[in-house]
């Protein structure tokens, strides 16, 4: 009698209904409306569609003719590559090092995780003050060394935009990987040690293979996350400055919709971002199939 609740699925569905309704109302419905909007003529926020574009797919053709969107797409792909190499890569390196120290591991975990809890607005201001040309922290150091001030945000705009984003999320993947490392049994390491595997060999033949599934999750999260990056770049490089060189798909969509009021084109960019996200996530899942050990 006690186990009847597990046999009857009705209550389970009842629990699922609120979340399902919530997702339908706040995710799928807006998304479908957004797809319809991308084929419509909507100028100005809050305005109703004034008919259908001629041809109806006009905004999607425009995407591939728009130089700013091309810049945004290229920068986003750089962001994507950067997240895999630097966010996950650095997180792996740091977690391997922290896993090998006996004292202070908790301290480093807290330190590396800390950027996650700082708001993007605060981080944007922080890095702005570091990279500012007049009176910025880095240029002050350079001035102390007798070197001329560098216009970081113009000469190295992409790098200056990527560094804070990479730095912000390293801690997130660090914590995931450290948790994965903790799940590897000490017995395996001891057995490997008896067999003569130590140092690099231990990492190469024991740690990395056993961490593979965790790394797959991290890579999938990072590549899909890279497509959604918006806040920090928008604060540091508003309006694609300098001279439309730092657009990302997210910032360009926001600018088109909210600054220019080109709502239908902004909707088309949003649809493109979702499509790109789905393709890349599928690709990542296919290439990085989780393994059973």
């Amino acid at each position: 009698m006690e186990s009847m609740i597990y046999k009857k699925k009705g209550p389970l569905f009842l629990f699922l209904v609120p979340a399902f309704v919530f997702i339908i109302v706040y995710l799928f419905y807006p998304f479908i409306v957004n797809i319809i909007n991308s084929f419509s003529v909507i100028q100005g926020l809050g305005n109703l569609p004034a008919g259908v574009n001629a041809p109806w797919y006009q905004n999607y053709v425009r995407l591939f003719q728009d130089q700013k969107f091309k810049t945004a797409l290229v920068n986003t792909l750089w962001m994507l590559a950067g997240t895999v190499v630097f966010q996950v890569g650095l997180a792996l390196l740091l977690s391997l090092m922290v896993d090998n120290i006996r004292k202070g591991a908790q301290f480093y975990r807290t330190v590396y995780f800390f950027p996650i809890v700082i708001s993007a607005a605060a981080l944007g201001l922080l890095f702005n003050m570091m990279f500012m040309m007049q009176g910025g922290m880095i240029n002050q150091v350079l001035a102390g060394l007798g070197t001329k001030a560098v216009n970081w945000k113009e000469k190295f705009s992409i790098q200056t935009m990527l560094i804070p984003v990479m730095w912000q999320y390293v801690g997130f993947y660090f914590v995931i990987i450290v948790t994965g490392l903790n799940n590897i049994s000490e017995d395996i390491y001891e057995a490997a040690k008896i067999d003569g595997a130590d140092g690099i060999k231990r990492v190469r033949y024991i740690t990395l293979p056993l961490l593979f599934n965790v790394l797959c999750t991290c890579v999938t999260l990072s590549v899909t996350g890279a497509l959604k990056v918006f806040d920090l770049p928008w604060i540091m490089f508003p309006n694609g400055m300098p001279v439309d060189s730092t657009w990302l798909t997210g910032t360009y969509m926001y600018y088109s919709t909210f600054n220019l009021g080109d709502v239908d084109y902004g909707s088309a960019i949003a649809v493109f971002i979702v499509a790109l996200g789905v393709i890349i996530a599928r690709l990542a899942n296919t290439l990085l199939k989780e393994k059973d050990y």
Partner: peptide, 21 residues
């Protein structure tokens, strides 16, 4: 104009005026 007139916000460059630069 300042060297970074295309890569710095207005309040940042106003400081040049207020700080005698």
């Amino acid at each position: 104009f300042p060297e970074n007139a295309l890569s710095a916000k207005d309040e940042e460059l106003q400081e040049l005026f207020f700080t005698d630069q």
